[in-house]
Computed example of a mutant assay.
Amino acid sequence: MVSQTEINERMRAILTDWLIEVHYRLMLMPETLYLTVYIIDQYLSLENVARNELQLVGVSAMLIACKYEETWAPLFKDFLVISDNSFSRQQVLSTEKSILNKLQWNLTVPTMYMFILRYLKAALGDKELEHMTSVIAAAAVYAARCTLGPCPSPLWSDLLEYHTGLAEPQLLYVFFFMT
């Protein structure tokens, strides 16, 4: 992000939050979301993106990830509608092509999600272990927000609670129980 002149980390975070909502609404696989964020981060590290094109990059990255990960990718028009028809079909396709060329079509990467799945499989984990892993991951996010200072307010937002299904008191219990 340091090489970006018009966008910053906060804008990237807002884009990611929006993409999580899109991911949820389109009922996509978790792998798709992780790959989308990876594609965006790699592209932003290689290409200077204008502020008014950041959402376009996000939509194009998710479209690429859907084509790569999903058995049945959502329709192209779904992405246009979700972005309030802010972009034309040609803009999205052009950005998609630009991203793929910049990344040299290298999309096969190990994401954090793949490691978690591998560890759970090695642990012969059941649904209870999978759930506990998610709770611990959420507690780690909470701890990181507390540690990296200055502390954001609130430490645990409604959006975080919505996506994790965990309220702050539940995280505090896990956080203190684990330490």
Rank of each mutant, 00 (worst) to 15 (best):
L63A: 10
Q104C: 13
E9T: 12
D78M: 09
L80P: 05
N106W: 03
Y142A: 03
P30T: 09
T133L: 06
E128L: 12
V81M: 12
F76W: 04
A50T: 10
L117Q: 12
S153V: 09
Y68H: 15
L148W: 02
T179L: 07
Q90V: 14
L44G: 11
A137G: 06
S98I: 03
A137M: 04
D17L: 11
D41N: 14
A73F: 00
V57S: 12
E47Y: 14
G165K: 00
L166K: 08
L103T: 12
T111G: 08
L117I: 05
D41I: 04
T5V: 15
V37F: 04
T108Y: 10
L63G: 12
M178V: 09
I82G: 05
L159S: 11
K127Q: 07
Y38K: 13
G149L: 14
E130N: 07
E31S: 13
R10C: 09
R51V: 10
C151I: 09
L28C: 01
V141N: 01
V49C: 11
T111V: 08
A50G: 08
R51P: 03
D126M: 06
L28H: 00
S45T: 11
L80A: 11
F79I: 07
L56I: 07
F76Q: 05
H131M: 10
S134V: 01
L33S: 02
D84T: 12
N48R: 13
R118E: 00
S88Y: 06
V2I: 11
L35A: 10
